[in-house]
Amino acid sequence: MKKATTTEAKTKEIVKKHGRDKSGLIAILQDIQEEYNYLPKEALSVVGEQLEVPISRIYEVATFYNTFSLNPRGRYLVEVCAGTACHVQGAFNLKDRLQRDLEIECGQTTKDNMFTLEEVRCLGCCSLAPVVRIGGNIHPYLTQNEIPGILRNYRKQG
């Protein structure tokens, strides 16, 4: 129960920072996601109450945009760039390899909560294609052969 009150307090603080303004809903959700790595259901209820926006509308926004996740994500977000330049350089093979090695489908999180695999719309590093971004770091000119070692390194870092 104690954790619940902190989520509430934290969410209220975030809503207040954005002036309790309905048009700030997306920015508020972004800040909540920044804080928790996903959008906790409880936080969304608090946002609804604070902004006086029906929870159905918040749920709509939270599920409409790619950035938001209603489920906890892993420690490292593995983003396979799905930009055109990466695609023509064979990014789909990297995605398949990551799916096999991590034993998850795109959009899922590994059992040990280390990695969440997602496809991302063009990271705009087309000169380095194909790229994968892991925990914010760009891995340029990535080949399938490098993947096991890279994943091992992140696992080691914890």
Binding site: A27, Y65, T67, F68
Partner: peptide, 8 residues
């Protein structure tokens, strides 16, 4: 500034 949230 308004930030998008991943929607083409």
């Amino acid at each position: 500034i308004g930030k998008g949230a991943g929607a083409f």
